[in-house]
């Protein structure tokens, strides 16, 4: 299997079709990274296409340092943040639209719940992730979903390692409080009903 850098080198020398290999190698990861940031199936598909277009347009900027993953995820992160900013502006001007977007968070996996309990749990997790600050969400997803090291996350985001450490720790704490507190409340409700 050719390395990313070898493929990029061939694309730069004119073999444009080799970019297909890059797309096939990264499209699922990029798509799901974006979807975990915005939880919107259609928009995630659109943004991930834009990511690959932007990557192709900016290939000359890539310095072949064996760091193509950081390069592509940096573009994905930037485009996703642009989309989130744009969506915030739209939400600011239209409250009606806001309810549509909230509905979209859960649409992407509507048919894949194992049980109602599973559905409630996942919805709570998704809404808790969406309530995190964007920076916390980016750092958390890059770490937990993609299993990137703090060093790699630093290359993608240009944040210092201590900052990443703090962002991830706070994100986990916030999610933990929301999810386990809610679960405890639910358990108490069940206990009262049983009595």
């Amino acid at each position: 299997m050719f390395s990313d850098d070898e493929i990029i080198k061939s694309i730069k020398t004119g073999k444009t079709q080799n970019f297909e290999i890059i797309i096939n190698r990264y499209n699922k990861k990029i798509l799901n990274f974006i979807n975990r940031m915005i939880f919107d199936y259609d928009e995630s598909q659109n943004i991930s296409q834009d990511v690959f277009l932007k990557v192709y347009e900016n290939l000359n900027r890539y310095k072949m340092e064996g760091n193509f993953q950081a390069f592509i995820f940096k573009i994905a992160k930037n485009l996703t943040l642009n989309y989130i900013k744009k969506r915030k502006r739209v939400l600011f001007f239209s409250e009606r639209f806001s309810s549509d977007i909230e509905g979209k968070y859960f649409r992407y996996e509507a048919t894949q719940y194992k049980s109602i309990d599973d559905k409630v749990k996942k919805e709570l997790l998704i809404s808790s992730i969406m309530e995190l600050k964007e920076n916390q969400r980016i750092a958390l997803i890059l770490k937990i979903y993609l299993d990137f090291s703090y060093k790699k996350i630093s290359k993608i985001t240009d944040w210092s390692i201590p900052k990443i450490e703090t962002l991830i720790s706070r994100a986990k704490k916030s999610l933990k409080n929301k999810i386990f507190l809610q679960e405890n409340k639910d358990k108490n409700v069940y206990k009262v009903r049983e009595k």
Partner: peptide
């Protein structure tokens, strides 16, 4: 928490994703 975040269902790229991007390029 880590397990639950990892277990969130992945979505699949649309069927002609690669050709769509290559056409645009």
């Amino acid at each position: 928490l880590k397990k639950e975040i990892k277990n969130l269902n992945d979505i699949e790229p649309i069927q002609n994703f690669t050709s769509l991007v290559m056409d645009k390029i």
